[in-house]
Design a protein around this nucleic acid. Structure first.
Length: 900
RNA sequence: GCGAAAGUGGCGGAACUGGCAGACGCGCCGGAUUUAGGAUCCGGUAGCCGCAGGGCUAUGGGGGUUCGAAUCCCCCCUUUCGCACCA
C-alpha cells in the first residue's frame, strides 16, 4: 500500500494531502533573504590561497545550503535512489526508526530520532548493504478524536493533513526513507490486517472476552481513557469519574510470559536498562498455592498464593481482595448483605483512584467467616483488605504479620495475632512477636513450625511445597505480574474488532473474505454517550455469517498498540492484498537489524511487538523469534528542562532552523551535540558551530574540486614525503575511527569530531603544501603526488560526511568529478599499513607520574625502550638518589619506572 | 522502597581492553584582515605556584587493589529514568 496512491473511503484523496506544497514558510517567495552570510570569500586556506585567489580572480561560490538541498532532494526523488527490493545476492540491513504519531508538526526532538536512523542507513548503504529504511504513520488514536470533538474536524481529515505536513518536513530534512513503502495504520489497507491477525488469535483462543473495569463519566455517559481523567474528574465536564465493569476484549499475552522472559536472555544488543524493565514488567515469581478450607461451606476453600510458604505457621489470618469472587457470596450469606457490599465497593473505588494518586491507608473489614490454616489446623479469621489485588495471584493472601510489613501494619491496626516463625540465625537477638515493630523478611531458621522447625527457610520452601502437594492441600506454582492485554476501546478512531454478536450463535468472527470491517463515516463527535460506532445503526445492524439471522457488530475498536506491534513486517511487503505480508519478503528483511526510538516505549510497545512476533511465529508466518536484533533508546530533546510539547509551548520547529542554516547544519548539530542515548537541552548557539564547520568544509573542497578531479592516483609510498605520509596517516586513521563510530558503536558525536579533526589537518596540509586553487598542477612543492594525497583525503572526507550532511556531500562529490552520485560510491577503504605510525611518543612515568616523553621508532623493542627511558635527562633527574626497583614496559604505550 | 543509568573545565562532551585526563565543539581572550561591523584565518583557554626550566592539585566524597585508576572493588552523597501495596 503506497499512501500516495490510495483513495480513502470517503473519497478524500490522500494523494492530494501528501502532495501538498511544502510549508509556505519555505517557499521561494518569502524565504528570508538575509541568510547570505558569505558576501565574499577571504583567506580560506592561508596566504598561498589568498594570493592564488587574486591571480585567478575566479568567482568563488559560497555555501548556500537551501539551493543545494533542494537540488539533491529533487534528484533523489526523481531517481528513486532509496527504493529497495529483495535481493538475495546482497547482504541486507533493515534500519528502522519508530514510526510517528502525526500530531501536527515534527519538532527537533523527532528530527534527532530520525537522524540517528538516517546516518546509520546511509552509512550501511555506502558499505554495500542493501538497506531498507522505511517510514510510516501510527495514525489511529485519541488525539484525532479529541480534535474532532473540540474543533469539529473529521479525525481522518485532521490525521491526513498532519501526515502531509510532517512528511514535507521530513523530506526537507533529506532523510533517506524508502517512501514507496510508506504505511499509515488508519487506512483500511493496513488495518484489515489487524483484523486478520485478531481473527487468527481468536481462533487459537488468544483473543477472548471478559468483564473488566473502565473509567466511566456518569454525566457524559461515556468511557474515558486514563489521560482524559484529570484529578479523578472528567476532562470535559469535571464530573467525578466512576469505575464501571464492561465486557472487554483481551489478548492472552500471559500465555507467552515464559517465552518473553526467556527471549530477554538472547537480546544481547539491547540496553540493559530496557531488559531489566521488561523482566520486572513480566515479574515472574515462584511460590505455592495453598488451600485454606472455609468453615461452614461444604468443600470450599480459599486459595492463596505465597512466595513464602515457609512462614505459613505464622499465617494468622486470610485476606481477600475486594473484587474476589467469594466476597459477593459472603455478602449474600451475611446478616447485612447491603452493608457488606457497600464496604467492599468502597475499597474498589478507592483502589482505582488510589492507584492514580499514590498512597492509600491500609484498611479492611472482618467477613465474620473463618478458614483453616492447613498446616497448623487452626481457625483463622477471613478479612477483606483494600491492598490485596484481584488481578494478581489468586486474589487472596495469607496474613503473616511477623514476616510481611503490610500484614504487620494490618495486624497492629486491627489487633490480629502476630506469631514469629523465622528466627534470624546470624547471632542477632531473637525476635519476639510483642516487640516487633518491623516485619522480619530476612533469612533464618524455622521455629514453632511443627515438624519443619529447625529447617533453614530455603530448605523449608522446598520441603513444605512438597508436603502441601503430598497432602493434597496445595502445589508449587509460578506467578507473573504480567496481565493479559486489554485491547477494547470504546472509541471511533481505531480498528473495528471484526466480531459479530449473534443471539443464536454467540460470538461469530467476521469471515476473512469480508475484511476489512471498515470504519463507518461518523461525522458528529460529541464526546458523549456510547461508543461512537454504537451510534451508527447501519454499522451495528448486520446479519450473522453463521445462521443468517439478525445480529449486531462489535462496536469496540482496538488499542493502537495493536497497530504498532507488527508494522515493521508490513514494511517488508506493504502492498500485499492476500496476507499481512509475504513470509518470503519477511524472511529476507527480518529481523530488524537496528531499531531506534524513545525509551518511553521500552516496555509496552516493545513487549507487545515481541509477543506478536512469537504469535506470528506460531502461525508459521515468520521464522525468527525476536523481531529486533539491536535496540537503541535515544535521549529526549528538552527545552527549558521539559520535553517539547505543544501544550507546554516549548516546541522548536525544524523549519525555522532549516530556513536559517539549512537541513545539513541541523542534521549535523543534532548528531554532534551529544551521544544518541543522552538527553539534551536544546540550545540554538551550537548550531552556529555546525554551520561554521560546513562552511569550512565547503571553502576547503569547492575551490579545489575541479583540480582534484584531475589528480592522479597515488603511485607508490616511496614517492611521498613526510608531510604527505602524515596526511595519509590521518586520513586512514579517521576512516578507521568513523567506520566503527557510526556502526556498530553508534557514537555519532565522536564520528563527527573525528571528521572535524581531519578538516583541521587538511587546512594545515594545504597551507604548507601550497595547494591553493591557483597553484600549478605540480603544486608549489613541484610534486604531483601532493594532489593525489589530497584527493584521497578529501574524497574520504566527503564520503564519510555524507551520512550526516548528504546534500553538501552530494554537491561536493559531483564537483569532484563523480557524475553518478553517492549512490554509486563506496565507503572509503581503511588501509592499516598506511595508518600505521612511523614513530611513537611514549610517556615515561616515574613512580606513577609522567616525567618525560620519548619519540621512538614504531618498532622499538622493550629493552631499547627501557634503556632509552632510563637514559633520559628528565627521568634521570627524578631518579637521582633512588634505586630503580621495577620497570614496566607497556609496548607502544608507556614506560613505568618504580624507584625508592 | 525496589530496579537501572549517570556524576569529568564556564558549557556540551572525549578518553575503545586499567596506560599521557580534558579530543572535538560552544563560549571567552588575543592577533591578522577590514573604513567599521559581520564573516574569515591564526593563536590561547582546568586550577594553583614559579621570571623560566618546571612543579603541585584535579574526573561527586571517602577507602582499597595495582608499577599505573575517570575506568576495577567496597562504603557514602547527589541526579535522572523506570516500576511500585506483586503476596
Amino acid at each position: 500500500m503506497v499512501v500516495s496512491s490510495v483513495l480513502s473511503p470517503d473519497g478524500y484523496a490522500i494523494m492530494n494531502a501528501v502532495a501538498a506544497s511544502p510549508s509556505p514558510r519555505l517557499s521561494a517567495a518569502n524565504r528570508p533573504n538575509d541568510f547570505h552570510v558569505h558576501p565574499a570569500r577571504r583567506g580560506a586556506v592561508g596566504d598561498t590561497v589568498r594570493r592564488a585567489d587574486a591571480q585567478m580572480a575566479s568567482p568563488v561560490s559560497d555555501y548556500t545550503p537551501q539551493a543545494i538541498e533542494k537540488k539533491w532532494q529533487r534528484r533523489w526523488t526523481e531517481q528513486r535512489v532509496f527504493e529497495v527490493a529483495e535481493d538475495p545476492a546482497r547482504p541486507k540491513f533493515y534500519c528502522l526508526v519508530m514510526f510517528a504519531y502525526p500530531s501536527g508538526h515534527a519538532h527537533v526532538g523527532h528530527v534527532r530520532n530520525y537522524m540517528i536512523g538516517d546516518v546509520v542507513a546511509r552509512m550501511k548503504r555506502l558499505r554495500g548493504f542493501h538497506v531498507m529504511h522505511p517510514f510510516g504513520w501510527d495514525s489511529f488514536g485519541l488525539p484525532a478524536e479529541n480534535a474532532a470533538i473540540e474543533h469539529h474536524v473529521h479525525p481522518r481529515t485532521w490525521t491526513l493533513d498532519n501526515i502531509a505536513h510532517m512528511k514535507g518536513q521530513l523530506q526537507r530534512l533529506g532523510i533517506s526513507y524508502a517512501w514507496e513503502r510508506e504505511i499509515a495504520t488508519c487506512l483500511p489497507e493496513y488495518y484489515r490486517w489487524n483484523q486478520w491477525i485478531f481473527l487468527k488469535m481468536f481462533e487459537r483462543g488468544l483473543a477472548y472476552r471478559r468483564r473488566s473495569t473502565v473509567n466511566w463519566c456518569p454525566s457524559c455517559q461515556t468511557v474515558l481513557a486514563n489521560e482524559q481523567v484529570v484529578d479523578g474528574q472528567c476532562w470535559r465536564c469535571a464530573s467525578d469519574v466512576d469505575a464501571r465493569a464492561l465486557e472487554q476484549w483481551f489478548l492472552r499475552i500471559t500465555e507467552y510470559a515464559e517465552q518473553l522472559l526467556d527471549g530477554i536472555e538472547r537480546l544481547s544488543d539491547w540496553p540493559e536498562k530496557v531488559l531489566t524493565m521488561q523482566r520486572n514488567w513480566i515479574g515472574r515469581s515462584e511460590g505455592a498455592q495453598v488451600r485454606f478450607p472455609l468453615a461452614g461451606a461444604q468443600g470450599e476453600a480459599i486459595e492463596v498464593f505465597t512466595t513464602r510458604i515457609d512462614t505459613i505457621f505464622g499465617g494468622t489470618f486470610v485476606l481477600l481482595a475486594p473484587e474476589h469472587e467469594l466476597v459477593d457470596r459472603m455478602a449474600e450469606a451475611s446478616e447485612d448483605p447491603g452493608g457488606f457490599r457497600a464496604r467492599a465497593r468502597r475499597f474498589l473505588a478507592q483502589d482505582r483512584t488510589g492507584r492514580l494518586t499514590g498512597e492509600i491507608e491500609k484498611e479492611g473489614f472482618d467477613t465474620g467467616r473463618v478458614a483453616t490454616n492447613p498446616f497448623t489446623g487452626e481457625s483463622v479469621p477471613v478479612w477483606v483488605a483494600n491492598f490485596v489485588l484481584g488481578e494478581y495471584g489468586t486474589g487472596a493472601v495469607m496474613g503473616v504479620p511477623a514476616h510481611d510489613q503490610r500484614d504487620l501494619e494490618f495486624a497492629r491496626k486491627y489487633d490480629l495475632p502476630v506469631r514469629v516463625v523465622i528466627q534470624p540465625d546470624d547471632g542477632s537477638s531473637p525476635l519476639s512477636a510483642e516487640a516487633l515493630s518491623e516485619a522480619y523478611a530476612g533469612p533464618g531458621r524455622l521455629v514453632d513450625s511443627g515438624e519443619f522447625s529447625g529447617l533453614s527457610w530455603q530448605a523449608a520452601l522446598a520441603k513444605m511445597t512438597e508436603a502441601a502437594a503430598a497432602r493434597g492441600i496445595g502445589q508449587g506454582t509460578v506467578q507473573y505480574r504480567l496481565r493479559d492485554w486489554g485491547i477494547s476501546r470504546q472509541r471511533y478512531w481505531g480498528t473495528p474488532i471484526p466480531i459479530i454478536h449473534c443471539q443464536a450463535c454467540g460470538l461469530v468472527p467476521v469471515p476473512y473474505e469480508d475484511l476489512p470491517v471498515e470504519l463507518p463515516d461518523v461525522t458528529a463527535f460529541s464526546g458523549q454517550g456510547d461508543s461512537p460506532l454504537a451510534q451508527v445503526p447501519e454499522f451495528v445492524n448486520t446479519t450473522c455469517p453463521s445462521c443468517g439471522g439478525a445480529a449486531r457488530r462489535e462496536t469496540d475498536t482496538m488499542d493502537t498498540f495493536v497497530d504498532s506491534s507488527w508494522y515493521f513486517y508490513r514494511y517488508c511487503d506493504p502492498n500485499n492484498t492476500e496476507l499481512p505480508f509475504d513470509p518470503d519478503a519477511v524472511r529476507y528483511w527480518a529481523p530488524v537489524d537496528f531499531y531506534s526510538g524513545g525509551v518511553e516505549h521500552a516496555i509496552l510497545h516493545l513487549i507487545y511487538s515481541r509477543f506478536f512476533c512469537k504469535v506470528l511465529h506460531d502461525l508459521g508466518l515468520v521464522e525468527h523469534d525476536e523481531p529486533f536484533s539491536r535496540l537503541l533508546t535515544q535521549g529526549m530533546v528538552l527545552k527549558g528542562g521539559a520535553v517539547m510539547s505543544k501544550s507546554k509551548g516549548n516546541v522548536v520547529d525544524p523549519d525555522d532552523m532549516m530556513a536559517t542554516y539549512g537541513a545539513d547544519t541541523l542534521r549535523l548539530y543534532e548528531t554532534f551535540v551529544a551521544p544518541p542515548e543522552k538527553e539534551i537541552e536544546w540550545a540554538d548557539t551550537g548550531l552556529e558551530g555546525s554551520f561554521r564547520f560546513l562552511g569550512r568544509v565547503w571553502r576547503l573542497v569547492e575551490p579545489l574540486a575541479a583540480r582534484l578531479a584531475q589528480a592522479p592516483p597515488i603511485e607508490s609510498v616511496e614517492t611521498l614525503d613526510d608531510g604527505e605520509r602524515a596526511m595519509r596517516r590521518k586520513t586512514h586513521g579517521t576512516i578507521k575511527r568513523v567506520s566503527t563510530d557510526v556502526y556498530p558503536r553508534v557514537h555519532l558525536n565522536t564520528a563527527v569530531s573525528a571528521l572535524m579533526e581531519l578538516v583541521n589537518e587538511l587546512y594545515v596540509f594545504c597551507d604548507t603544501a601550497g595547494c591553493g586553487p591557483g597553484a600549478p598542477a605540480t603544486g608549489t612543492a613541484g610534486r604531483i603526488q601532493t594532489w593525489a594525497v589530497l584527493r584521497e583525503a578529501i574524497e574520504a572526507l566527503v564520503l564519510m560526511l555524507s551520512p550526516f550532511t548528504p546534500h553538501l556531500a552530494e554537491e561536493l562529490w559531483e564537483r569532484l568529478g563523480h557524475a553518478d552520485g553517492l549512490t554509486a560510491a563506496r565507503w572509503p577503504e581503511f588501509d592499516p599499513a598506511v595508518a600505521k605510525a612511523e614513530t611513537l611518543v611514549i610517556p615515561v612515568q616515574v613512580n606513577g607520574k609522567v616525567r618525560a616523553r620519548l619519540t621512538v621508532g614504531a618498532d622499538s623493542d622493550d629493552a631499547a625502550l627501557e634503556a632509552q627511558a632510563l637514559a633520559d635527562r628528565q627521568v634521570a633527574s627524578h631518579l637521582a638518589g633512588k634505586t630503580v626497583t621495577k620497570v614496566v614496559v607497556a609496548r607502544g604505550r608507556l614506560v613505568s619506572i618504580v624507584a625508592k
